[in-house]
Structures are given as C-alpha cells and as structure tokens.
Simulated assay, not measured.
Amino acid sequence: MDDPELRNLFARRLGRRQLAGLDAAFAVVMIMLMLAVTGNRAGSGGAAPAEIAITVATWLPLAVRRLWPRPVCAAVLAMTAVSVIAGLPPEALGAAAYAVYPVALDVPRRRWLPTPVIGVVSCVVLFGGTLAGPVGGGADQAVTLVFGAAVLGGSWTIGRAVRERRAYAARSARQLADRAVTDERLRIARELHDVVAHSMSLIAVKAGVAVHVADARPQEALDALRVIETTSRGTLAEMRHLLGVLREGSMPDAPDLAPVPDLSALPALAERAAMAGVRVDLDVRAPDLPESLAVSAYRIVQEAVTNVVKHAAPARCRVTVAADGGALRIHVADDGPGTRVLPGGPPPGAGHGLVGMRERVMMYGGDFSAGPGASGGFEVAATMPYETGATT
C-alpha cells in the first residue's frame, strides 16, 4: 500500500524560495567539484588563483538564475567562453546550459527563432560527436566550441518545449473551466425552463378557469386563485434556489441551494397536474437510481406532464417509470387530441420542451421519441442506460 505522506511530499510543488535554494546548493556543489577537477589536472601545485576565480565566476551566478535569468545567462556565457579559452575543463559548458534553460522558459515565442531546427541540429552534433570520439591536435578547442554550441541548443530546445507544454496545459485548463461554466449555465437554463414552463402552464389554466366561472361559481374561482397562489409561491422559491446557485456557487462555504428533485417528487407533480384538470396515474418502479439520472427522469416526466396540461387538459395521463438494472424507461401517454399546438402558438417541436427532454436523454446515450400514439393521444418515450451501483 502506498504511503500517503510520501505521495503528498513528491506531489507538492516547490515554492520560489525553495527552488532558489536548490539552485544555490547546486552552484556551491559544482564549484567545489570543478575546483577539485581543476586541481587534479594541475597536479601537486593545485589550481592557480586565476583558474579558481574563473571557476567561481562561471558557476556562482547560477544561484540566482531564476531571479534574473537573462543577466545571469549573459554572465555565465561570457565566463564559459573565457573558461574554454583558458583551457579549463569543458564541464563549464554545463553551467552555460543550466543558465540558458530559464531564459528559454522566459522569452516569449517569436517566429524568427527556429527552435525545431536548433533542436535537430543539436541532436545530430551531439550524437555525431559522441560516435566520433575525442579529436586530438589543435582541433580540440574548435570541437569543444561546436560541442558546447550543441549543448546550448539542446538546453534551449528543452526549455522551449517545456514552455509550450505549460502554455498548452494552461490553455486546456482555461477551456475546461469555460466548458464547465457553459455546461452549468445550460443546466440552470434547463432547470429554469422546466420550473417556469410547468408552473406557468398550471397558473394559466387555473386563471382561465377562474375567469370563466367567476360570475356563476365564485367559490370555484376562489379555489383556482388559491391554486395559483400556492403554485406561484412554490415557483418563486425554487427560482430563488436556482438564482442562489448563480450568486453563491463560487463561494467555497456556500450551501448547496440547487433544487434536486427526484422520482419521490412525482406524486406532488401529479397533484399539481390534477389541479389543472389532468389526472396522472403513476407507475414508478425504479429504486436506487444514480442521483443525476433520477433528476433527469423527474424533469422529463415534468415536461411531458406540463405539455399535457398545456395542450390536452382536461385529460388523463399515465406515467410509467421502470428500471431493469441496466436501463431506465420512461413512458408518458395521454388521451388528448394527439397534437401539441396551441391556437396561435408555435408549430410542434418549435419550443424548448421536447428539445430539452431529448437533450437530457442524449446525455446518457439513450433513445427518445415523441408523437401521436397509435390509439390516440400523445406519447413520450425515453430509454436511458446507466451503470448499476453508480451513485452520482
């Protein structure tokens, strides 16, 4: 079993001071190592003071390479050239490569810098030089300079590649964040549509009843007004919850205000539909559904019943919701006229109701159909597969 403390230690990102401390430690260690190498090559007399000064001046600036990358790079390159001319160990080229890397990370991208070409040429030179082996005679210094240029080119290429990778990761993170915001807005828009469409349809039906019976049956008109009052208050409360999500959702300690109705809320939905003259017969056999699927199922049934209220009331409606352990099936059928057009209203499918139901079903890779039933009325059918045992 993995040790969580070790995993957290290596997963933690080092701070700027810690990285600067590592650079300083690296510079000190390399100075000591280079002085030892220089002293061994010089023999019993040890390294000359000039050699010591050049070695220190070459490696010491690397301690602050993250603070001032460009000045440090210029200083180290100059001292590396002096070191090569003075015949000091060629390991000083490592200091130059170490100084070039943060500059490659810091410099903005420019089209005239052929980084891919630099990388390819550097690889060819390094690989070819390794295969060729040491070169004797007076060509040693020239070969060292060419090899050093290839090392610098490789360091530059690696730095540019890391910079591009970080930029790509940042762009991907921004795109994911923007996509998450868009998805959340679409979800809230669907929720608002479902809430408002259902409630306003019920209010419109009851308002029409109240107008027609106000003179002849005032008590019935009063009952209709009570239904309107109750429905409107409930709708306003639910809309406040939804708007609260937009207002408080970015706060880490904000409570979860999003309404999450599930199949247990279907009886209340049937009661509200009955107030508008639509009798709903429920047959729900879907225990232990994932939460998100239960919410989508409720919204699909709500929209389908709302359409019955708007287009077919008074009518009778049968709602069947059944799960067989691998798929959830929803079927809503009414005995109305079989059309979904109000006088002067939009043509079938022009509204957001059927589109919203279809989108919810498509999220799960399911099948959706809506249209006149074979024996009259209108039917809505949806099948949504899901994984058993899922809880979200």
Rank of each mutant, 00 (worst) to 15 (best):
V205K: 06
L126S: 08
E303Q: 11
V380A: 04
V321Y: 00
A53Q: 04
M239C: 14
P49I: 11
A224D: 03
T80Y: 09
P287C: 01
A382P: 04
A265R: 03
P114Y: 10
R340Y: 01
S199E: 10
R179D: 12
T182L: 14
V332S: 00
P90M: 03
G277P: 01
A258I: 04
L222I: 12
L35M: 10
A214H: 08
P116V: 06
A149L: 05
A350H: 11
A53N: 12
G376D: 03
F368I: 07
G87L: 11
P255A: 02
A210F: 06
V321F: 01
H311A: 09
A86H: 08
L354R: 01
L93E: 06
V380L: 13
D256Q: 15
M79F: 09
D183F: 02
A150T: 14
W112H: 10
A297K: 10
Q175N: 10
W112Y: 05
F26D: 02
E359T: 07
V125L: 06
L246A: 10
G87P: 05
A99C: 01
L243D: 15
S250E: 14
H331W: 00
A11N: 13
V82H: 14
M363C: 05
M275Q: 12
R179P: 00
M79N: 08
A150E: 06
Q302G: 00
R111H: 07
A180R: 14
L242V: 11
A24N: 03
H311E: 01
V117Q: 04
E164D: 15
V245Q: 02
H352W: 01
M30G: 10
M200L: 07
A237L: 13
G154W: 00
A374S: 15
R185D: 13
A169H: 13
G325C: 03
L19C: 14
G154N: 13
G366N: 06
G21M: 02
L88R: 10
L88W: 05
H352F: 14
A96E: 09
G45S: 15
R163C: 03
G249K: 03
V103T: 07
S296C: 08
C123A: 15
H193V: 14
M30Y: 08
V227S: 00
D283Y: 11
D256M: 09
G133V: 01
A197N: 13
M384N: 02
T38A: 15
L105E: 01
A327L: 13
L236Q: 13
H241W: 04
A36C: 07
D2G: 02
P347H: 01
D183A: 04
S44E: 12
H352C: 07
A81M: 06
G138T: 00
A142P: 02
P90L: 04
V205S: 02
R185M: 15
D106G: 06
T383R: 11
R7K: 15
